[in-house]
Design a protein around this nucleic acid. Structure first.
Lengths: 345, 345
DNA sequence: ATCACTCGAACAAACGTTTGTTCAAAAGTA
DNA sequence: TACTTTTGAACAAACGTTTGTTCGAGTGAT
């Protein structure tokens, strides 16, 4: 016999003869609690099965004012750093019965604002945001109405909980290494100036230089975006403006930037580490397989994702009672390979 | 003066004195159509603005039976291939006012089934699926109720429209190149046997060999998954089982597999292309920067994403009228670098 | 002054759930 | 037998929208 599909509780009610409320209770496991007889329960379950019924999560969300969705906002999902993080967040979310809305802001603050607004309209139960990092007002407003956790970048002056890697100490370790190898003229190719992420890394860079009695040449701190293109442009600029005395080492602030640098150096036939040493943030699957295996500062992307979700879940479970959460700083790891060399005689 | 936030139309109704229907019409731009006076409209818009009102998209979706969401199912979002595709799809979706539910199946058919079911419960307007490729029943059922487009992999025997690259011809071009360079013993390191993607590429490989009068050694077609780990294992296996006469070239079926191969070769100090040539599917941002710049078959990931969304949109707009759609095959591009060498005397 | 319109907005039902309450029938008690 | 309690399920309201219909008050024509 061909069983019609049942789309709604009403359909099931018509077929079974029981009311929607009874059916709802049975299918939600509340049958016994509401004294619905075993026989009735079996019948209902059978019919639901046969008609391959499933709830409309939308209607449910409306009624329960809980959508079991969370929003994930990232600057660029095609960047492996965010992709990896997203992957973990998705897994955790799935495990806890949440679905995630993926929002790519394309590195634009304007889009970021729009996405925040959109997610609010969609009544997500919470948000995990890797912000561009320049403007925070919309995020503050988001946090006021919706559980929110920031990842990767954050804001000093507002108290949205965040999970990020310990950039400051990671940088110190890396730059110290370069200095130990004898480098005194080190260029720093940065991402977006003014973002917490960038500022932390640059400050740690300067501080480490100073600690070792080295002066920082501000002209060697260049770059405007965490992108391959910008890294490429910065490297070219470096080459052109320092024809005579190039820095002996480069400290790159991200995976994408490093790709750009490598492309530029490849074009100019500059060899690493013979002509210049490079140390870079972000360990990638290919880092060890590059022409010169790259020395990297590895961030615990998976942990960041996991912990961020965990924080978010706590906020969600606390309901509207705002809870104070301490942010989390996760340690980085320096992975030493061939891209840095000693220049000590 | 501090203006309270208005959460719902009811709130706005209370504040403004107009009814919810009137307000709804005004804010949806139907004011004039329903002869609502300019003055009323201005008042309503003003209040909505002041109270920073926004619709509950969930309730809206329920009422309109249109959620403006689409589901995106991929085997692994942390794989740059899917990440790149997702990025494009997200952008197109955003442009057309759709939000996307990201579902990572973690390369598991079981999870894929669950995700499909979940998306149906969430009443997505459509789905874009990069299937594992082994089982199709659940996808067929999905297609029966929901506009659906497959990407990357597809199924011969069912008629869900798909967008993928022209693997067959891409492979022919690549393998022909190897043969032209004198290679006669070529290993093929594959992904999941039995999937359309894999089958197409392997068949094209065999066919090309035959066309050139070469015999295919089935022992040189190895591998079980599109993963780094599996590629690594396959390469190791190849090395161990062919101590004496290794193939002179390898044809790798994916980016992840290739990374595994490179890691294995790096460990064993096998040089490319001196000791063995490698040609690989998938162009990556780092392909040209590897120890030996990789010769790749580049797939138009962005185009795939874009076209898939476009097909999906057409299905959605056709409402419940199922429309026949022809699938799309996009050309690949062979990017020649140093990883393949000639062995002609 | 009567009637027919037009104008402007309210009314009410519906989308698919969930849940507190009610209610009839069966079972237990006195 | 008459009354209370338990059992099993129905009833109805609510979540926040949208939309077809209704309705009263002005306006104009006759």
């Amino acid at each position: 016999m061909i069983q019609k599909k049942a789309k709604t509780l009403k359909d099931l009610a018509k077929i079974s003869g029981f009311t929607e409320s009874t059916i709802s209770r049975v299918l939600n496991g509340l049958g016994t609690k509401y004294r619905i007889s075993e026989s009735t329960q079996t019948i209902i379950k059978k019919i639901a099965e046969d008609t391959s019924f499933s709830f409309n999560e939308n209607a449910r969300g409306l009624r329960l004012s809980k959508t079991s969705t969370i929003g994930l906002i990232v600057p660029d999902i095609s960047n492996s750093f965010f992709a990896k993080m997203a992957s973990l967040i998705e897994r955790e979310a799935r495990f806890h019965n949440y679905s995630i809305f993926l929002c790519d802001t394309d590195n634009s603050t304007k889009l970021e604002k729009m996405m925040v607004r959109l997610l609010q309209k969609r009544k997500v139960d919470g948000c995990i945001v890797a912000p561009i990092g320049l403007i925070s007002k919309h995020l503050e407003e988001l946090y006021n109405t919706t559980p929110t956790v920031l990842v990767d970048r954050f804001f000093e002056d507002i108290n949205i909980p965040y999970v990020t890697s310990d950039d400051y100490n990671g940088t110190i370790t890396a730059v110290t290494r370069l200095i130990e190898l004898g480098h005194t003229t080190i260029a720093c190719i940065q991402g977006i100036p003014g973002t917490s992420l960038n500022t932390n890394r640059v400050n740690a860079f300067k501080s480490t230089m100073n600690t070792h009695g080295l002066t920082v040449n501000e002209d060697l701190i260049i770059g405007n975006a965490f992108s391959e293109e910008d890294g490429y442009a910065s490297a070219k600029q470096l080459i052109n403006q320092n024809k005579v005395d190039m820095p002996t080492a480069i400290f790159s602030l991200s995976n994408a930037i490093t790709l750009g640098i490598l492309r530029a150096f490849s074009e100019e036939n500059i060899n690493i580490p013979e002509q210049i040493s490079v140390i870079s943030f972000d360990e990638e699957s290919y880092s060890g397989l590059l022409k010169t295996p790259m020395t990297t500062i590895s961030q615990p992307k998976e942990d960041i994702g996991r912990q961020a979700f965990s924080l978010l879940l706590k906020q969600i479970e606390a309901k509207d009672k705002k809870i104070a959460q301490k942010s989390i700083l996760l340690p980085t790891k320096l992975i030493i390979r061939d891209s840095i060399g000693s220049i000590l005689k």
